[in-house]
Design a protein around this nucleic acid. Structure first.
Length: 347
DNA sequence: AATGCGTACAACCGCCGTCTC
DNA sequence: AGAGACGGCGGTTGTACGCAT
């Protein structure tokens, strides 16, 4: 019954990884793929638990990780997604290419959360704290709205997970069919072209030519497009103009099976309807988050230039970015709520 | 120069759903 | 069927670092 224990914890090393350990892990995965994490440390000559190896790989050594400062756009995305998903870092990370859930989580806790608090925004509800305190009757509605949003997003994630499983199976079958003649079964967890010049994630120019479809969810490349992980997030509209299609929209458009759609549809209208009512519920808080002083450093006021606490001056590109974001969320709402009679404009 | 404090982030911990035997 | 390992996830902690005093 069951399996043998993962590792003999008594002899395992803990704490920070040394460059030598990193090198061993990298070299092993480069050659063999990670395979079973449980057996990896022994094969790679590491005195580490498999779990520790996996974390080191996924959070630090993976070649497709972008490190360093988060851009304003990334910050906005995190805030927006956090408002929608809460502390579901892995889900948020799937919409931020090359960022790990751990990194996003850390960044939220050390930067964004504090920034929102300073601005008087509740980092949990994303509502202005004054509004939260003043509207006791609105609290239940807010909770209901959040609940509906959570239901909707849960349904979406459920469908996403199912699709991932199905696609993984398909991909595995495809891989097996194409590799019957190969002797050693290799993990296809990433594709790495430069086999000799590994650079540590903190090094290099951030545009390393390392191709890897590996996300924190370890999808194959076949999965990235339907799940909206931007292998190429550019899309064309009717006028053949390049437009940024939000990841969630891509997902909704291209990957939902009929059952998935119905699953999602069960929940979507309730909270969309509530979001459409701008005087109550999360819509208000969210709108104020995006329009008001919360992320004001990238938003213009009525004046030529706006300076916000610790933020600096808003320039034209930032204003355009705001406009993009406005369109982003309107697009999400319009797409999700596909009924032509309902125009889901919240900004 | 020494000390204290705050910040950032890598790494660990524990839980949970899934999978394997 | 069910025990137990695996892998993923979110929360928390430990520690290195920078800055102020």
């Amino acid at each position: 019954m069951g399996r043998s224990p993962c590792c003999d914890k008594a002899e395992l090393k803990k704490g920070p990884w040394t460059p030598e350990e990193d090198q061993k892990l990298l070299a092993y995965i480069e050659e063999h793929g990670h395979g079973s994490w449980r057996s990896l440390p022994e094969k790679a000559g590491l005195q580490r638990c498999g779990k520790s190896c996996r974390l080191r790989w996924t959070n630090y050594l993976r070649p497709d990780i972008k490190r360093g400062k988060f851009t304003v756009q990334e910050e906005q995305t995190i805030i927006q997604l956090h408002a929608l998903l809460g502390n579901r870092w892995s889900a948020i990370a799937t919409h931020l290419p090359k960022r790990t859930d751990n990194e996003i989580k850390n960044y939220w806790n050390t930067h964004l959360k504090k920034r929102l608090v300073k601005m008087g925004i509740d980092p949990v509800t994303h509502k202005n704290k004054n509004e939260t305190l003043s509207s006791t009757t609105g609290q239940s509605k807010n909770a209901a709205t959040l609940s509906h949003m959570a239901q909707w997003e849960s349904a979406r994630l459920e469908a996403e997970a199912r699709l991932a499983r199905e696609s993984k199976l398909l991909h595995l079958q495809h891989y097996q069919n194409n590799n019957l003649n190969k002797s050693a079964p290799q993990q296809h967890c990433f594709t790495h072209k430069t086999s000799t010049n590994w650079t540590k994630p903190n090094e290099g120019n951030g545009d390393q030519q390392l191709e890897s479809p590996t996300s924190t969810m370890t999808f194959s490349e076949n999965l990235l497009m339907p799940l909206g992980i931007p292998t190429d997030s550019r899309n064309r509209n009717n006028n053949n103009e390049s437009t940024e299609i939000p990841a969630m929209i891509e997902f909704a458009v291209s990957s939902s099976t009929s059952s998935d759609v119905s699953l999602v549809k069960e929940h979507e209208h309730d909270w969309i309807r509530q979001i459409n009512c701008p005087t109550e519920g999360i819509g208000e808080g969210f709108t104020s988050l995006l329009l008001g002083d919360s992320v004001g450093r990238s938003l213009p006021t009525g004046k030529n230039e706006a300076t916000v606490a610790g933020a600096g001056v808003v320039n034209e590109s930032e204003y355009n970015y705001y406009e993009d974001n406005k369109n982003y969320w309107n697009s999400i709402l319009n797409l999700v709520d596909s009924s032509p009679s309902d125009s889901a404009t919240m900004f």
